[in-house]
Simulated assay, not measured.
Amino acid sequence: MTSLIIRLIISTVVVIVSSRVLQGFYVDTLTTSVIVAIVMGLLNTFVKPVLQFLSIPITILTLGLFYFIINIALVYLCAYLVDGFSVSSAIAALLFSIGLSLTQWIAGWFLD
């Protein structure tokens, strides 16, 4: 349970830092940041594996680069679902998803 809370806090910090650093990436409040972290966690847990499985042929053809498109689509889906969160460029969405993935990977490495 504490591992889940620590991951949520780390994700929230990444969302806040990304909104301050990246142009084209906007988060209204701290509460919105927490909601974005929760929604991104749920999308990465439930939707992303399905999309990755369905896109295996195109991922093979693009030598794995299609995974970036999936990450961008998930960020835009999160922006659609959460009020007060917007992304105006695909580059900002890609950089956010890469930053979130890296920090979650590092957190998982230390927490597990």
Rank of each mutant, 00 (worst) to 15 (best):
D28N: 13
S101M: 09
S101G: 15
V21N: 05
V15Q: 05
L94T: 00
V21C: 07
T32C: 12
L42A: 15
L74V: 04
S97Y: 06
R7H: 09
I9H: 07
Q23P: 07
V13A: 14
V15Y: 02
I106G: 13
F68P: 00
L61T: 02
L4Y: 08
L102K: 01
I91Y: 00
V34I: 15
G24L: 08
G41W: 00
W105K: 12
P49Y: 03
D28P: 02
S18C: 11
L81C: 08
V50Y: 08
I72H: 03
I9G: 14
V39K: 01
G24K: 05
Q52I: 09
L102R: 00
T29K: 09
D112I: 02
V21S: 09
D112C: 02
L42E: 08
I72Y: 04
S33E: 02
F85W: 06
L61E: 04
L30V: 14
I58K: 01
Y76H: 11
Q52C: 11
L94P: 00
A79Y: 02
L30M: 13
L4D: 10
L51H: 07
G64M: 03
G108R: 10
A92V: 05
S11W: 00
R7G: 06
S86Y: 02
T29F: 07
S101C: 10
M1S: 11
G99P: 04
S18Y: 03
A93F: 01
V17F: 07
S11R: 01
Y80C: 10
N71P: 06
S88F: 03
G64T: 07
I91N: 11
L102Y: 01
D28F: 08
F46C: 10
F66G: 04
T103E: 03
L94R: 05
G24Y: 00
Q23T: 14
T29Y: 05
I56H: 01
F66N: 04
I16H: 06
I98L: 15
A92R: 07
L42N: 07
L100K: 01
W105P: 08
Y26C: 10
S3A: 14
S19P: 01
S101Q: 06
F53K: 10
L95K: 09
I5K: 08
I56Y: 04
S33I: 00
M40Y: 03
F53Y: 11
F96Y: 15
L77T: 13
W109Q: 11
D28E: 13
V14N: 01
V50L: 13
V47D: 04
S19H: 12
F110Q: 09
L54N: 04
T103A: 15
L77I: 15
M1N: 06
S3F: 03
I106K: 02
L42W: 05
K48D: 04
M1K: 07
T2Q: 15
L100T: 00
F110M: 12
S101P: 08
A107E: 02
V34R: 10
V39F: 09
A107T: 06
